[in-house]
Design a binder for these strands. Sequence first.
DNA 1: CTAGGGTTAG
Length: 641
Amino acid sequence: MLRKINCFFHFPKHVSFSSSSNPCTCQLPLSSFPPSSPYLKSLCSNGQLGEALLEMAFQGPAMKFEGYDALLNECVNQRAIREGQRVHAHMIKTCYLPPVYLWTRLIVLYTKCDSLCDARRVLDEMPERNVVSWTAMITAYCRKGYASEALNLFIQMLRSGTEPNEFTFATVLTSCIGPNGINLGRQVHSFIIKTSFESHVYVGSSLLDMYAKAGRIHEARGVFECLPERDVVLCTAIISGYAQLGLDEEALALFRRLQMEGMSSNYVTYASLLTALSGLAALDHGKQVHNHVIRSQLPSYVVLQNSLIDMYSKCGSLTYSRRIFDSMPERTVISWNAVLVAYSKHGKGNEVVELFELMREENEVQPDNITILAVLSGCSHGGLEEKGLEIFYEMETGRFGVEPEIEHYGCVVDLLGRAGRVSEALDFTKKMPFEPTAAIWGSLLGACRVHLNVEIGDSVGRRLLELEPDNAGNYVILSNLYAYAGRWEAVRALRELMKEKAVIKEPGRSWIELDQILHTFHASDRSHPRREEVSAKVMELSVEFKEAGYVPDLSCVLYDVDEEQKEKILLGHSEKLALAFGLIATPKGVPLRVIKNLRICVDCHNFAKFVSKLKGREVSLRDKNRFHQIVGGICSCGEYW
DNA sequence: CTAGGGTTAG
């Protein structure tokens, strides 16, 4: 209605203006009034999409490029798909022939409104396409995770003779992520070199990320070093590349170097850095990053807060972890998962269950498969097998909206095995709808070792060795079990088999952080400046502990040497070195926080209990899977890990 | 008009 009034107001003015240039205009019928593009544009820029659509209807076939452009622009801004469809329909009805630009705006509109089919239809039906139209569609497929559609379309684009540009390359490479995409990615890389886009930062970041995510970190680094220009995203990509591969020291070192060279950081950079610090359990560094984040008054980014939750928990500080979680103005499922995992790894089963109940009560975010995994493994580590089973059966009814996957079944096997219900666990693996993985057999074997079930352990262990002949850990556990049972012949046979298959054990490393320095120890590495002193201290402790009842567990040594040698090997284990160093280098009563890259061995676990009891230190040991919080000789793991 | 890096688990 408003428009009509306006129209009449404008009428006389318009006629007088037009008549001066073209005297015939005043006789034209009403429908051919020259349209008021500025008016339509102002409606659009005010966000009055409804009014603007009325104006469009009023103008009918007189609609011009500017009007459509303004309308589509605002539809994109508002993600207004229905309104956009009306504009689209109007073009068709009035036989308007849009230029490529407008067709492309339609594609963009549909992709931003998650209507990829509509977008694709436009692309297929428009009379001609340019690089932007193709790229917009490819980008949409990439973002939605439709990698093969994206790549097919890219190929179709090349066949059509359209030259890709830097936008196309930056986006299409994100669909070459993963082991299968790498070959195609290399081809795209050579194409990029041929077309001279290889020094473009956006293209470079994408390329780098592709190599990093395929585990080809040297190639990623090569791309990084060759780029003439660097920005935050590129620097973050290489740092997170290292961090995601567990190359935490490299990530940290590179961050330091780049920072000295003047790199700017943003919240993504910090999140990636925190991932590396979590891996290293570098609490002092982590706190420094946290302080920096607070001081620089960054807005509250959920992603960054999530990283902080994880960092504190993996550095052993559950309190801080929870504090971050509680202070967050908004949380995603990842925030909940991170804090659930935190409690789970610390063996706090009750807290896990409590928090999960709170999550369901608040009902702001829906649990996902990882949530349930964290809860189940929390119940397992926390000794709540009945509760865990209850939750698993509830999951099977579909109550959480998450379908049970093989990992969930694995948790139940772990749960039953840990509770000593080993044969039930074995039955469960037979009944579950998945083929058991090596991890599941491994957890069952662990249960057999702890509960000394040689019969099941024997058959499970054999299957496991067939399935995973290269994993040294399996040989160790099975050998432990045979040793407990006094089956020395079997121990020997296992050792032969290991030699035959040339299984290489990943070297065990342990470290401890003192004043922002990580002191790393390794059984056969003598590079630490105080290494001699540390070894002497271990010997001294061993003597002292033996008087108090410590008996070295020689079954932890797989080498075929005499007992004296075995004991010597045990005393060289990296965990003991790190503990001894902690005792030497910190004042009495200070808790010791030791991190190990592998599972901790039974003997070292025992040794640590003596440290806590006889030396009056709380010992926090983080191994590959979980935390061992040892106070007064009692460990939070309940002797099962 | 079209583009790159990120947090939980394993």
